[in-house]
Design a protein around this nucleic acid. Structure first.
Lengths: 239, 239
DNA sequence: CGCTGACTTGAACCCGTTCAAAGAATGTGG
DNA sequence: CCACATTCTTTGAACGGGTTCAAGTCAGCG
């Protein structure tokens, strides 16, 4: 980010309008069309900077290119509730389509690169390009499947184990091994999200380390025995 | 399913292919087309009957016309985990689109009427009818927003309160008052879903009744003081 | 009517929270 | 680059909410 962003930027692999999704159906010489119509703008967020806030008017879909964010709400008395974390490849804003406003706040946890495209432009493109339409629907469908099941788990350890597997799963999805990754959120956010005390998170992590299931140094996490973690989480899916 | 289903049945208001969503764009004399191409079949499920099971091949979208279902998974050791409940107006199967298989089991909690349509037929219709395409995308988007936030709540009371408001919210969405409704699931399913003991559910419900927040007789529930329930749930949205 | 399963209630125990404090990591200004 | 301040994280000890185990009550149904 330190570098000055050029707009339109080169589409990254995950971007919603990466030419690969258009090339099959558009005539070859039209392939650059989306870069002029539904331009993907590059945004760069600093840590703690907001991508959007609850109640903002919805126009834009955001693809995370690198970095991570948390989404959260605040209750009547101003207490924060972390409802999810978001990683590269994920598209933010699709849960705002039906209401026309973003239903939560989205804040960067670290320096984060985002590709932004206009929803209406994507939509009208998709009416012409069945490939894109199908992709759009599949993205939405996948997001629905992507429930944070671990939230319904019984004990605190069960929930945390499920959460770590969730992180691992998504890290794997991004091409990493899934066994070594960095927690981009702090303990407070984890605890908040899982509905437990921050001290419990800390204690459980050191317990898991003592049991030899994982190694953790600050925010650097290594899962040593994923199968044992899966037992603890009473794992439901292949996650 | 005991009764002989007549096909095609009269579309109920919520059905995905109810003519109202097609009439605007289709020429008037084509309006009956979907009833012959993407027929809505009526299914009738008895209590405990499955609509589909995890790993079944996905072809069909189901709209719930009346009744209710639970969706659940089983872990490695055969323990059941209730991941959600489903009510009239909701469409089941949209989280199977991207993978081609249903990602969980769906079981009727009571006698339940379902309207079934072929996804591929809906999809190809939607490529011709932008109205339908937009509706499809909005349905998917709404479903994503429809997170069970209460699962991340701290105490057991907080989670239960959130869950009851969730039920109330959906009952309201179906035209009811939202203050009087029937719990179609048993205490075991509620407890399982919320990650707490069945006895806790029972105790909390009687406590809430003693506090005058609700009245409960067997499965008949009346919410007397929704605002106090909302306080308990540390309510996040307008729910 | 009597059985079975669903729900409630009671009491003891334990996990997770709360309160308190120390220790590590990170940032800031001199 | 260091000293200091702030924030993040870990650890300890006592308390309390929720679970577990056990028994009892109630509703539904043959």
């Amino acid at each position: 980010m330190s570098e000055k962003p050029k707009l339109p930027h080169t589409f990254c692999k995950q971007c919603l309008l990466h030419p690969v999704y258009l090339s099959k159906t558009l005539p070859h010489d039209n392939r650059t069309a989306p870069e002029t119509t539904a331009v993907g703008k590059l945004h760069i967020l600093q840590p703690k900077e907001h991508l959007f806030r609850k109640e903002d008017k919805f126009h834009i879909l955001f693809t995370i290119c690198s970095g991570s964010l948390k989404s959260y709400l605040t209750d009547i008395e101003g207490r924060e509730k972390v409802i999810g974390f978001h990683f590269p490849g994920e598209i933010l804003g699709i849960n705002a389509i039906h209401s026309g406003i973003y239903p939560h706040n989205a804040m960067a946890l670290e320096t984060t690169h985002i590709c932004a495209v206009s929803f209406e432009q994507v939509f009208s493109l998709s009416t012409e390009i069945p490939t894109l339409q199908r992709r759009l629907i599949q993205i939405l469908s996948r997001k629905i499947s992507d429930h944070p099941f671990y939230l319904g788990n019984y004990g605190a350890e069960e929930r945390l184990a499920g959460f770590l597997l969730y992180l691992s799963h998504h890290s794997k999805g991004r091409g990493d091994s899934g066994s070594h990754f960095v927690l981009s959120m702090d303990r407070r956010d984890i605890a908040n999200h899982l509905g437990m005390a921050i001290e419990t998170v800390s204690r459980l992590l050191t317990n898991l380390q003592k049991k030899g299931i994982l190694k953790i140094k600050n925010r650097q996490l290594a899962i040593i025995a994923p199968e044992r973690l899966r037992e603890l989480a009473r794992c439901l899916t292949g996650r």
